[in-house]
Design a protein around this nucleic acid. Structure first.
Lengths: 235, 235
DNA sequence: CGCTTTGTTGAACTCGTTCAAAGGTGGTGG
DNA sequence: CCACCACCTTTGAACGAGTTCAACAAAGCG
């Protein structure tokens, strides 16, 4: 019996692997988690960088972020995890966690079966192939992030919003209207800006009629314009 | 018979996998390549983004770079390949190439045995594990590059030089004195700067007595200072 | 309700880019 | 062998995008 039957890359978010037929948890919901599940509250860590013997988790509901702290002390956000995403591919290599994962809000995760995804057990060829595809996608995501890092501020936020929009759509939510689960600081950190600048860009796009922004509730009014911004090169 | 017996990550460079006992080619040498080998001259492409039915190559001598062109037309350099590195892990997923690879100078590559590394053949569990470790390292390299993208100019070049220094050392060359195989433009592109800035930073570090620079011949005079620069946060 | 935290807006400043020009380097053909 | 040319590298000066600093507004929370 294989638990991971279908791996799929979800927009911008890390190591995304989904079982669509299991994906039913919304962002707000009662957490009646089956065995192997775990509920985290805002600020709770799923695991920390360096932890051993972690397993692979699937996000059932809520949002988490992965990050690590550099020698100089500044935080680097590696990615966000939405419902359906898999977390902890380090475990698959038998390595200790290379980054920390923390809940941005009340979140629920489920431990993937040790039988199907285990360090010791020989992998099935197809599962291996799927995991490779998954990591390949992760490489693309980072390449994308790298490209964003060399673009202007508007392009970065536009790119992020479009990615998030797609991620929402692929989960069956509205493509043009959604709630951003992370604060400005985390958002800024992810796209490589300072919170003030993010705020400015939001205001700028709002004034241009491209977005409607109320706190973290975003509405994309002019999708084409946003796309145009995302593609335009640095400046 | 497994050809890839030992996979090892080489500093900053992509998908690095080595067989140390086979690694003997220096940067300048007569190219008497065995069967399956291929010699490229400056500007020759090993393959281009989108090519199908590529295989996995190992760099025997010379240096290559991988890159792709964005919609806007600007080039993104993904990484450099030094002797011993493996190229073309896309082939392992049975996907077409996601980026182009071109020789920076006369270079020699060898096709890895189709028997040992093939899309169709079931992978050996250990080889799979090794490839996963390899891709994991690639993820780390990109994360590192991402961090560099958010640092100051000095830190970026310092970081690059230290990585390159390590890569040289791991190949048995001098850690403190080496020849950079890529031009200022490619170097700048890789670390996310413009050539002029790279030039300025080189001059700055030279004037501070940290480096000796003659064209592409670099000598690290103050390794500690360079390391300090690489760690210091953005500014 | 008062407090802390988070988000917004303005003004000055800084770092890297852009633009422009001079100095080198390597390759080619006379 | 040298002259020429194209390309790369270096250096300078001005500009501009994003950050920093600081103040204020808003929201979360006891």
């Amino acid at each position: 019996m294989e638990v991971v039957q279908e791996l799929e890359y979800i927009g911008l978010f890390s190591m995304a692997a989904r079982q669509l037929h299991r994906l039913e948890a919304g962002p707000a919901r009662h957490w009646s988690v089956p065995s192997g599940g775990r509920v985290l509250h805002r600020g709770d860590h799923l695991f920390r960088s360096g932890d051993r013997s972690q397993s692979v988790y699937r996000v059932i509901g809520g949002v988490l972020k992965s990050y690590f702290i550099h020698q100089n002390g500044d935080e680097q956000i590696m990615g966000f995890y939405l419902p359906g995403d898999l977390i902890g591919f380090d475990a698959l290599s038998g390595e200790s966690a290379s980054f920390s994962v923390v809940a941005l809000d009340t979140a629920s995760v489920m431990r993937e079966s040790q039988d199907s995804v285990s360090v010791d057990a020989p992998f099935s060829a197809t599962l291996d192939r799927q995991l490779q595809a998954c990591m390949r996608m992760e490489v693309f995501r980072l390449a994308r992030l790298l490209r964003m890092a060399r673009s202007g501020t508007d392009a970065r936020l536009a790119c992020f919003l479009l990615d998030y929009s797609e991620a929402q759509a692929s989960r069956g939510y509205d493509r043009y209207e959604f709630h951003l689960p992370m604060g400005r600081k985390d958002l800024a950190c992810y796209i490589g800006l300072v919170p003030e600048t993010v705020s400015r860009v939001f205001s700028r796009l709002r004034d241009r009629g491209i977005l409607r922004v109320e706190n973290n509730h975003i509405c994309i009014l002019d999708h084409a314009a946003l796309k145009a911004l995302a593609v335009e090169d640095q400046g």
